[in-house]
Simulated assay, not measured.
Amino acid sequence: MKAAVLEGIDQLVVKEVPDYKVGLGEVLVRVKTCAVCGSDLRIMHSGNPRVKYPQIVGHEIAGEVVEVGDGVERLGVGDRVAVGADVPCGKCYWCQNGMGTNCAINYAVGYQFPGGFAEYILLNELTVNQQVVNLIPDNLSFDEASLAEPLACAINGLEMSQLGVGDTLCIIGAGPIGCMMIELGRHMGATNIIVIQRSQRRLDMAKKYSADHYFLSDDPDIDAKVKGVTKGEGPDVIMITCASPEAQEQSLLLARHRARINFFGGLASTARKLNISSNLIHYKELTILGSHGSLPRHHKKAIKIIDRGMVHTAQYITHRFPLDQIHEAFHAAESREGLKVVVNP
Rank of each mutant, 00 (worst) to 15 (best):
S141N: 09
S277I: 00
G116Q: 02
E16D: 14
H298F: 06
E119H: 08
L267H: 07
I172Q: 05
K300C: 00
G166K: 01
N106V: 00
Y120R: 11
R308N: 15
V5H: 03
C179I: 05
L216Q: 14
H257T: 11
A314H: 15
A35I: 10
D236R: 08
G290M: 12
Y283M: 08
A302M: 05
V51K: 02
S210N: 14
L158M: 12
G175K: 04
C92P: 06
M205E: 11
D86Y: 15
A152K: 11
I61L: 07
H187T: 13
D138Y: 13
G23I: 03
V17R: 01
E149A: 07
E125R: 15
A224T: 10
G84R: 06
V36C: 06
E60V: 03
Q162Y: 14
S335M: 12
K21N: 06
V68Q: 04
Q200E: 14
E159G: 00
M181G: 05
D236F: 01
D70E: 14
Q112T: 06
V195K: 10
V68P: 05
M1C: 06
V29G: 05
G63Q: 09
Y53A: 08
D204Y: 12
K227T: 01
E64Q: 12
N275S: 15
H282P: 04
A332D: 04
A302N: 09
Y20T: 03
K15N: 04
C92H: 11
G178S: 07
M181E: 15
T287D: 06
A108K: 03
V341P: 03
D223I: 15
H187Y: 15
L123M: 14
G90C: 09
K225R: 15
G58A: 05
V81D: 10
S39H: 07
K2V: 00
Y111M: 03
V5S: 02
R80D: 11
E337T: 13
A224R: 14
A145H: 03
D212K: 01
I303C: 02
R30E: 15
K304D: 15
P245V: 01
N129I: 01
E159W: 14
L216W: 04
D218Y: 13
E285R: 09
H327E: 10
I121G: 01
D86L: 14
E64R: 07
G25H: 04
E246N: 10
A174Y: 02
A104L: 11
N139P: 00
I121Y: 06
Q248V: 03
Q11G: 05
P137D: 00
R74Y: 13
V65S: 03
V81K: 09
G228W: 06
A82P: 08
S277A: 08
V128P: 09
L12R: 08
I196G: 08
N156W: 00
G38S: 09
E26N: 11
G115W: 04
V229C: 12
I61T: 12
I171V: 12
V226I: 09
S46H: 15
I61V: 13
M310T: 00
A104T: 07
G234H: 06
A206N: 04
I288F: 06
L6R: 04
G185V: 03
S291D: 07
A104R: 10
Y214V: 05
D10C: 12
C95P: 09
M181A: 04
S294N: 15
I43S: 01
V341N: 01
K300E: 13
